[in-house]
Design a binder for these strands. Structure first.
Lengths: 333, 333
DNA sequence: CTGAAAGCGCTTACAG
DNA sequence: CTGAAAGCGCTTACAG
């Protein structure tokens, strides 16, 4: 094991003080150019590398940004992480990424660990069950800028970056209306999730704006995203709608398959629209019309505003809302 | 701005020395149980968190592990990252994740940055174009254990974790043969990628073992994964095969759709098998038979062996090969 | 069992 | 311009 070269080694060999070496290394202005040159030369020869940890300790600045997401392995979050990572490396920041696996306890543990690592900023998208802002506030109280994205909670006052789900849903339903649909059903998500509420509101408002009365029988909530969908689809089909706006692509695809099995043609008898623009939506038959959320951009923007807050020490606590894009495919033509 | 609680604060409030506080905190054995209890109680009350940076400096151990992947936003890699993250947090390690975006220069830049952060270990899956092991060796020369996974290169001597692609391909083709297929085509990937070679070899060996002669006209390589597929599919179909083994799921799905458009029934006329078990493979019509690669397990295992090397300072440079699983679905029934 | 002291590698007022 | 000194928050021999 070779011991790394330190400023002490340089100082000793040159017979000068470590303060001077330090100044030469970080290109201070109050130093004799010749001295500086000598130091730099030796540093190069010995392949001196400053110890990042020691620097962090004294400067109380690590350039590490902590990221907590519910899960890494999701198309949306991995896109967001991708955007964050690209910007971070460009700006010379380092990322520590944790996943909560949708568990509040692991989420809190991760945040605390990150804080203990002296992160300079925190980027977080909370788990489904996170209600309490306590641990995030702990971080803020330690003067760590926090930016929330996607899964935000109102209790935390900080800059937030989200996607305009409401508008996305509105556009999707408007599109169906313009195609001539009059009886548009909605398969929603868990009732109290903010995502579900916003998408449903977009649906309701689009109907209202086009003078279509909403019918409670056409609206079914799933208790979870995975389990209930087929049940919901069965119920909704019994009401013979001419279109279904689904909470996400997976649900929409299940709806398509169920409807086809029952002899309906898509989009002939029923038009179907999903949400997310999952890679899968482009390859199913028929290809699924869906609402694209700009995950990469969300990540990049969130990272950008966080870095701003870290460097300018400004905390405006703004809300950034990115727009969605309707991706029209065969399932609604 | 609240300054974080330090052991000094604890010591002052309890009127004992910082050495004692330190010992209580790290559960040393030469400490009075009562003293320890008091310290821990106060620590809990004040929400004391040890300063990682300070600990790292004195222990010369950061517990940070650097990870470099070609891209985060891929089903396979995000699964692997997920496995790594889960194990890392359990073992009290921290992850710094970078993506190379398949660019050798960014890959090298990331590795160097990670090394400057005093990472204790490096986990890497190289970009498509990485040929030279130089920068990885730089890390090894600084005594940083390196584990490669998935995209490995032979020039680096280190522990490696991969999936048995060969066997996966073999099993897929064997399955087709057992279904009675005699004329099995293969749409391969870029010719010189190790993935492509191994999967093709599995294909060839399965044919040979079952006394089916291979026919060069039934084997088409795509120059890239994205562009060439449709072209390849057209050519292959012209040879009227009774099955196609595709390099990945996306190609397989394109093949299914093209074949159906041409009036073939799947699996009636042609059986089709993909590779990866992408989430999409379960939802397309017909559902796609494919080879599942255990991404999460690869990540977890790679992290596990890396931590072993870090802690036990052993470097056996073993090769770990995880097995695939054939997921049989409608497209090959 | 406990405390005083040295030290991890670096930065930065403060004097000179 | 340069050096001595204090300090970042912690650990760990060493004495007692």
């Amino acid at each position: 094991m070779i011991k790394p070269v330190t400023i002490k080694d340089l100082a000793r060999q040159l017979n000068i003080s470590i303060s001077t070496v330090s100044r030469a290394l970080r290109n201070a202005n109050d130093i004799n150019p010749d001295t500086k040159e000598t130091v730099l030369k030796l540093a190069r020869e010995l392949e001196y590398e400053p110890n990042f940890i020691a620097q962090s300790l004294v400067k109380k600045q690590t350039r590490i940004i902590g990221v907590v997401v519910p899960l890494i392995n999701s198309n949306y979050f991995s896109e967001a992480l991708s955007g964050m990572t690209d910007l971070a490396i460009e700006q010379n920041y380092h990322l520590m990424i944790c996943q909560s696996n949708e568990r509040v306890d692991l989420e809190n543990k991760s945040i605390r660990k990150l804080v203990a690592c002296n992160i300079n900023g925190l980027l977080i998208s909370v788990s489904k069950d996170t209600k309490s802002p306590e641990v995030i506030r702990e971080a803020q109280n330690k003067n760590i800028p926090v930016v929330m994205f996607d899964r935000i909670i109102p209790e935390v006052s900080c800059t937030k970056v989200i996607v305009d789900e409401y508008e996305g849903a509105y556009k999707a339903v408007e599109h169906l209306i313009r195609k001539g649909c009059k009886k548009i059903a909605h398969i929603g998500g868990p009732r109290d999730l903010s995502v579900s509420k916003k998408r449903k509101q977009g649906y309701l408002d689009a109907l209202r704006d086009y003078k279509i009365e909403d019918d409670p029988k056409l609206i079914i909530h799933c208790k979870s995203f995975e389990e209930d969908a087929s049940n919901a689809i069965r119920k909704v089909l019994a009401e013979s709608p001419d279109a279904i706006f689904c909470i996400n692509d997976l649900t929409a695809i299940m709806a398509i398959q169920y409807a086809r099995k029952k002899g309906f043609s898509i989009p002939g008898d029923i038009r179907i629209v999903g949400f997310n623009n999952d890679p899968v939506s482009g390859v199913v038959q028929p290809a699924l019309t869906t609402v694209m959320q700009p995950g990469y951009e969300v990540g990049k923007l969130a990272m950008g505003v966080l870095i701003d807050e870290i460097e300018k020490k400004t905390a405006k606590h703004k809300l950034f809302t990115l727009r969605t894009r309707l991706v029209t495919r065969l399932s609604s033509r």
